[in-house]
């Protein structure tokens, strides 16, 4: 954050948390959510959400990569040759992703095994590339940081909702703790196996998209 602040400071008087800045963070959380409205980043939203724990780690990983790449791209934006800008972004993003993957392997090995290829697949997560191209290339580092943070949190909100629903309905647990008491099972309650499989995630995601668009009054023609 200090890098972003330092570069943002000299430019006249920049409000750190003015109305505009708050808007940048708040917008993607719900009204302009990258998953439900722009329908980006679906792949990992379905793949890692069978339970809460990998979901949370995935959210943290994406937040690190997205804010990091946005700030770096924004710092370099005046120097990046226009013709190769996409591949430059890709190099920055993939370097960050490899870094996150290596950190996970060193500090949280079991989690890195559970997330397997999906950490590396952050490289192809359209949200990261999309924000770099659409926002960071044209904005200063601090707003870019906020934009990255906002979009990452927007992604996380939806992922956590799906993960919550899938683990609760599919395994009767949250973060691995059994919530549905044993007597319910004895009485004939059965976990919903569908929720563990990808179609379960699609169904939940469909409902969330419906609710979000209805509440934000967003209708497609």
């Amino acid at each position: 954050m200090s890098v972003a602040e330092a570069t943002a400071a000299p430019v006249k008087k920049v409000e750190l948390f003015g109305k505009k800045e708050r808007q940048i963070v708040k917008d993607p959380l719900w009204d302009n959510n990258p998953i439900t409205l722009q329908v980006l980043g679906i792949c990992s939203a379905l793949a890692v959400t069978t339970s809460m724990k990998p979901t949370v780690v995935m959210c943290i990983a994406l937040t690190a990569v997205l804010t990091g790449s946005n700030v770096i791209i924004s710092l370099m934006r005046d120097f990046i040759p226009g013709k190769i800008r996409i591949i430059v972004m890709l190099s920055v993003i993939s370097s960050l992703v490899i870094l996150v993957d290596q950190m996970l392997k060193a500090f949280s090995y079991s989690m890195s095994k559970e997330l397997s290829v999906f950490v590396s697949l952050i490289i192809t997560n359209c949200i990261v590339m999309g924000r770099a191209e659409a926002f960071a290339m044209a904005n200063k580092p601090w707003p870019s940081f906020l934009d990255g943070l906002g979009n990452a949190l927007g992604y996380s909100v939806i992922l956590l909702m799906i993960g919550f629903g899938r683990e609760l309905l599919g395994s009767g647990a949250l973060f691995g703790f059994k919530l549905i008491p044993q007597f319910m099972y004895d009485m004939g309650y059965v976990d919903m196996g569908l929720m563990i499989t990808p179609p379960g995630a699609f169904i939940l995601l469909g409902f969330i998209i419906w609710i979000q668009r209805e509440s934000s009054k967003h209708y497609e023609d």
Partner: peptide, 29 residues
């Protein structure tokens, strides 16, 4: 010329950074 130089520079920075991280984290991994 600038485009080539920029691409080369970026590759160099990225690869050095990653090798560094890899070397530091390797014993833990």
């Amino acid at each position: 010329g600038y485009t080539y130089a920029f691409a080369m520079g970026l590759c160099l920075v990225c690869s050095i950074g990653l090798s560094l991280a890899y070397t530091v984290l390797k014993p833990m991994q």
